[in-house]
Write a protein that binds this DNA or RNA. Structure first.
Lengths: 322, 322
DNA sequence: CTGAAAGCGCTTACAG
DNA sequence: CTGAAAGCGCTTACAG
């Protein structure tokens, strides 16, 4: 009793007793048993699974950072499971369910996996899709507005005086790719600018695909004065190609990306890009799921939550007036 | 009772009763209260803090990945705290202690912070230093042998026929920098090769410092046929400089790094480098600390553990015979 | 200011 | 095969 009061810093413990307790705590190497404390406080420890299929992505790492910040606040356990193909996806899901996760976060591209989502729905497990461009009505999501992001970036480039703007598309199987392209088109159209079909090239979100795209855009006689790549890895590759061709950045060519992953500030010049608050997105994901799990444990039926986070245009060294 | 047996899959529950229980579980959305279970099972939930000062590093992210894998196995909570200067370092430490962490992991460069380690020792909190090149006798550590790594890489380059080998040093305030340099020197000496002082340049482990180093090495009339940079970020920068100068890699110049961070496989050509099993290092760190915490909670005095992990030389596209 | 008693949700002998 | 009882380490009224 008195020990409890001492530890929790409550009033009504005489200084003498308090010191005695503190001394004993030291002597015995005593630490509070947090499980027991939680039991009494009625907060059941729960576990949130993260099922991902893109292990090398800096994106996931930042998500985990934010998720951890939040989960250590609420006391949730985070459980990571990785998968590659469809078969391993099923296996990974089964493993998470067997481990008794109470909720699941799906980072891209699994956020758009019909199969996974249906399985989870059947199990009655609260699910949250991350960075999907096509949020489902009944599955919670946290994302930014990719369309608005691309719109803002393109307007910025036009504002700098650029007219011939190249665009590198993203992986067509990822839902945001499309939105980013459409945002680009919309901004060009609203300013009455033509789009040279040769200035729009395909990419797959990888550095490698960015190299090919960069060469397709820059090795021609007529080349754009600015290139907007759908993500940072591809933008970094375009910069590398430009370096190789002796094109000065940003003096002779403006290049910008999307996402603001670590590579954006690693390379030189640093990349003008759309900053996604990825750490905050991870934090929000865990926070939303935590609440839903608590709801569900009380017997309520949690309502899906859709949160759209704010992006920021980061103006850095890779862009300049035409 | 019967519910408990059903959930834990023990024998001696009649099929009828079992189905009834399962049905009720579904109907009521029942989930086991893990805190209560832990209480009964005697396993106190504990919490491991990670105090870091290098937020953008891919290194930390991989450490966390491994740490999470292990902690979700043992049920430990991971708590992240970041700091920048000395003042915020003290504040962050205080915050972790106030949160009641039972053990602390110190990634580089904090792994060599005398102040932090002394504070933790005074508090009697098990501590583990990550990737320090100067492990203290009485503080647990997990690391690779940087000296052997640099030795292996340099021998590999010499084996390829290179004789004029450039070296980019790392941040002198990080303890592994020195060891990597010494390993390089040792391999050169054992093969009877001279080291041109102009071929050894300073760096700070940053991409930016790698650019300067690359220019210092490659813009001269007489340049090395291979460059060994003390980490991947700097090696990537040297590759960028080479691209800019129109030097073909690996045909005209071999470049290699150290660490095998994500950038090594992002860039093109991909980087020959020393692979640190960072995820496994994170896992080992949490495992070791977990055991020490359990020991301590039983009243025993945990002995420090020092684990040296194996590195691997990853041969990729950036290196070739002279 | 202090401490005996009850109860959090679970599991593990124990007795039927 | 089933269930009543005790106890894990904590905290919160409750009575002194």
């Amino acid at each position: 009793m008195t020990v409890s009061r001492t530890i929790n810093g409550q009033r009504y413990v005489s200084p003498e007793l308090r010191d005695q307790v503190l001394a004993s705590i030291r002597a015995l190497n005593y630490t509070v048993n947090k499980s027991a404390r939680n039991t009494r406080n009625g907060s059941s420890a729960y576990c949130i699974g993260v099922l991902y299929s893109n292990p090398s992505s800096a994106y996931l790492n930042e998500i985990m950072l934010g998720g951890l910040q939040e989960s250590s606040r609420t006391g949730a356990q985070l459980l990571l499971e990785t998968c590659t193909g469809l078969a391993s996806q099923k296996a990974a899901l089964k493993k998470l369910l067997a481990a008794g996760v109470d909720g699941i976060i799906l980072p891209p591209p699994l956020c758009d996996s019909r199969l996974t989502i249906e399985t989870l729905k059947a199990e009655g497990i609260p699910t949250l899709a991350l960075a999907t461009a096509r949020p489902l009505e009944d599955v919670s999501s946290v994302r930014i507005d990719d369309y608005q992001g691309a719109l803002a970036m393109t307007r910025y480039l036009i504002g700098l005086g650029h007219r011939e703007i190249g665009f590198v598309k993203g992986d067509p199987s990822h839902t945001p790719s499309d939105l980013r392209y459409v945002g680009f088109l919309a901004a060009m159209r609203e300013c009455g600018l033509d789009i040279d079909p040769a200035f729009v090239v395909n990419g797959l979100f990888t550095y490698r695909s960015g190299l090919a795209a960069g060469e397709a855009l820059l090795k021609k006689k007529k080349r754009p004065t600015a290139v907007f790549a759908s993500n940072d890895d591809m933008a970094a590759a375009v910069i590398a190609v430009a370096h190789g061709l002796g094109i000065k950045i940003p003096e002779e060519l403006t290049i910008c990306g999307f996402d603001d992953t670590p590579v954006a500030t690693t390379i030189w010049p640093s990349l003008t890009t759309i900053h996604q608050p990825i750490v905050e997105i991870g934090r929000a994901a865990v926070a939303i799921l935590s609440e839903q799990i608590e709801r569900q444990q009380k017997g309520e039926i949690p309502q899906p939550v859709h949160q759209v986070m704010k992006f920021t245009l980061m103006e850095r060294g890779s862009s300049a007036p035409r």
